[in-house]
Amino acid sequence: MNTWHVAQVVAVGRLTSTARTLTLAVPGFAGAVAGQHVDLRLTAPDGYQAVRSYSLARVGRDEVVELAVDRVDDGEVSTYLVDVAEVGDRMEVRGPLGGFFVWHPDDVGPVQLVAGGSGVVPLAAMVRARATSGSPAPFRLLCSVRSPADAFWADELSAPDGVATTWVYTREAPPGVTRPVGRLSAADVDAHVIPPGERARVFVCGPTGFVESAAALLLDAGHDPARIRTERFGGT
């Protein structure tokens, strides 16, 4: 796990106007669990290096790393990955990393996923792991995004044969959506989250402000803090 593996970009795909997927071929990389992340290291021609952590968007194929990267303003690594990197480019990967914010397919209990923006990435990995394993675990996914154009994998995650997914829009909603645009509310949690009595495992991922407010809403609704796992990015 402490080894840096050589990685080569084998595919890129557009997700939104600011985000894209990158698929890397990484010999030696194996055994990832949904929810885990990797460290990614870029080295400039003069030897300067930058390392950032990215959640895995999909697990299950050894020697393949699938990421979804949203561009952060002034982010030296994310701007490279979203705007510059092409098939054939090389970097280094360490991982898989993280043993807590993970879902194992042998866990058949109910699972509630709550995503803010690009925080959906590790949760999508869990949805995909559930599908490929044939797990009977009841899953619900609640995604908060600014607008339909900002949603990652909207069609796949909303597929009728998949998990029960709800989209909440904070700035601009598609036609026909009656919920007023706005931040995740107690009413949203009440309507779309597995009730606390079912003792679901809850995973919340997103920007710090989103995770703080979503976790507080879940606690207010009666969820057991010990069953809520969080992953945050960005500062205060």
């Binding site: 050589v6 870029l42 080295t43 400039a44 300067y48 290096q49 030296e76 510059v84 480019d89 090389r90």
Partner: peptide, 13 residues
């Protein structure tokens, strides 16, 4: 042996 990343300059803060 370093693996260089084409097109990456970095910010060199």
């Amino acid at each position: 042996m370093a693996v260089f990343t084409r097109g990456f300059g970095g910010h060199h803060p």
